[in-house]
């Protein structure tokens, strides 16, 4: 969530609401954060249980992969907010500003198309897993819970990329008006 949007909205809310709103807008990061903490903790304690207590967590792998999947897909949207996604700018850097902007919008539209396609088929995959009742081997965790992060991640990425794009375009227009 771009900070300036939060500030703007906060004019219309009292501070308590603002705090709630801030947490709400970062809920993906909070979920990914918990998944990461659990991932590190079970791996560390898994080592202790296996080596020192000779009683390994037999469910370690499946919970590790669960957490990992959640970190990646819940974090995917947040990575747009922090500008962490990598892109190759070899050609675009040599383009005139106007063309750059067109290419940027094109890139956004391509990504949207891809993400919507993935959202749709990711949802279908989760539905298939629901129908066939696939669960993890040891703990019997339903796979729709684990892989559900995939379509959710697509939605989060669509929202975040859109917000970043809006912010970037409006900013640039302001700059142009400012007589750049």
């Amino acid at each position: 969530m771009p900070p300036d949007i939060i500030i703007e909205r906060s004019k219309f809310m009292n501070t308590d609401n603002n705090k709630v709103f801030k947490y709400l807008m970062n809920i993906d990061m909070i979920i990914a954060g918990f998944a990461l903490i659990i991932l590190v903790m079970i791996t560390f304690f898994g080592v202790i249980m296996r080596y020192f207590l000779n009683n390994p967590f037999v469910w370690l792998q499946e919970v590790q992969l669960w957490c990992f999947t959640w970190v990646v897909f819940f974090g995917g949207g947040a990575a747009f907010r922090s500008g962490s996604h990598v892109a190759i700018d070899v050609l675009v850097d040599h383009m005139p500003a106007a063309l750059k902007k067109i290419v940027e919008i094109l890139g956004y539209l391509v990504s949207m198309a891809v993400l919507i396609y993935l959202l749709f088929h990711g949802k279908n995959l989760v539905q298939q897993l629901l129908q066939t009742g696939r669960v993890t081997n040891i703990l019997g965790i339903p796979y729709p819970i684990i892989y559900g992060a995939f379509p959710i991640g697509c939605v989060l990425m669509i929202i975040n990329y859109t917000m970043v794009m809006i912010k970037e375009l409006t900013n640039k227009e302001l700059n142009v008006e400012g007589g750049e």
Partner: peptide, 23 residues
């Protein structure tokens, strides 16, 4: 610690033998 495939049947099957099955 004997590595077994990641499924309950094989984990328990080795546990009864006294080993520590480790997926």
């Amino acid at each position: 610690k004997i590595r077994v495939p990641n499924n309950t049947i094989q984990i328990k099957g080795f546990e009864v033998l006294g080993a520590t099955p480790t997926p």
